[in-house]
C-alpha cells in the first residue's frame, strides 16, 4: 500500500521536473552570447544543468522506491510526529482544522501580509497577522494572544522607528 502511494507521486514529480527542465533548457538557449569570444559563455552551465535535470527526472520516473517501513521507523522525526498525532484528541476535524486547509490558508495569509505590509503598514499587518494566525492555529487564549500580537506589532515598531531610527512602513496609522 505504502509503496504504491509513494510510487505515484514520484512519477508525477518526475513529469513535472521533466517539463520544468525542458522550459529551463529553452531559456538557456535564449541567453544571449557575449559580444567578445569567451571560452565558456554564460549559457554553458545552464545548458548542462538543464540536461542533467532531464536525465535525473527520467531516472526518477523509473526509480524503485526502497521498502518504506524500515526507513520511516528508523527516522526519529516521523516516529515522533506519529506519537504526537496519537496523543492528540481524536475528534472529528472540521474543514478549517484540516492540515491541507491550514497550509493553504497560511500561504494565502503570508501573501496577504506581504501585499499589505507597505500599504497598511507594519503595525496593523503584523498585529492582525499574529493574532489571526495564532487564533486560526487553535490558540484560544484571546487576552494572551492580543497582548503578544500587540507587543510584536507596536513594540517592534516603536522600538525600531522611534527609539532606534529604523525604517518600517508606517502605513495607515498616523504615526
Amino acid at each position: 500500500m505504502d509503496t504504491l502511494k509513494r510510487f505515484r507521486p514520484n512519477q508525477i514529480i518526475s513529469v513535472i521536473l521533466f517539463l520544468f527542465s525542458i522550459f529551463y533548457i529553452v531559456l538557456a538557449y535564449q541567453i544571449p552570447g557575449y559580444a567578445l569570444p569567451r571560452p565558456v559563455d554564460a549559457d554553458l552551465f545552464p545548458k548542462v544543468l538543464g540536461f542533467s535535470m532531464v536525465i535525473l527526472s527520467i531516472a526518477l520516473f523509473f526509480e524503485r522506491d526502497r521498502p518504506v517501513d524500515k526507513e520511516s521507523e528508523s527516522e526519529t522525526e516521523d516516529h515522533l510526529s506519529h506519537e504526537t498525532e496519537e496523543k492528540e484528541e481524536k475528534r472529528r476535524e472540521t474543514f478549517w482544522e484540516k492540515a491541507e486547509t491550514q497550509i493553504v490558508v497560511t500561504a494565502v495569509a503570508i501573501a496577504a501580509y506581504i501585499f499589505l505590509l507597505e500599504r497598511a503598514g507594519f503595525v496593523l499587518t503584523t498585529l492582525v497577522f499574529v493574532y489571526g494566525m495564532t487564533w486560526f492555529y487553535g490558540y484560544k487564549g484571546h487576552l494572551a494572544n492580543i497582548i503578544v500580537a500587540s507587543i510584536i506589532g507596536f513594540g517592534f515598531y516603536f522600538l525600531l522607528t522611534r527609539g532606534l531610527g529604523v525604517y518600517l512602513p508606517p502605513g495607515l496609522l498616523p504615526f
Binding site: 497577522f129 499574529v130 495564532t134 487564533w135 492555529y137 487553535g138 490558540y139 487564549g141 503578544v148
Partner: peptide, 11 residues
C-alpha cells in the same frame, strides 16, 4: 504555545 510559535516564526 505551538499556535503562537508558528505565527511568530513566520513574522
Amino acid at each position: 504555545p505551538r499556535a503562537m510559535l508558528l505565527s511568530l516564526i513566520i513574522v
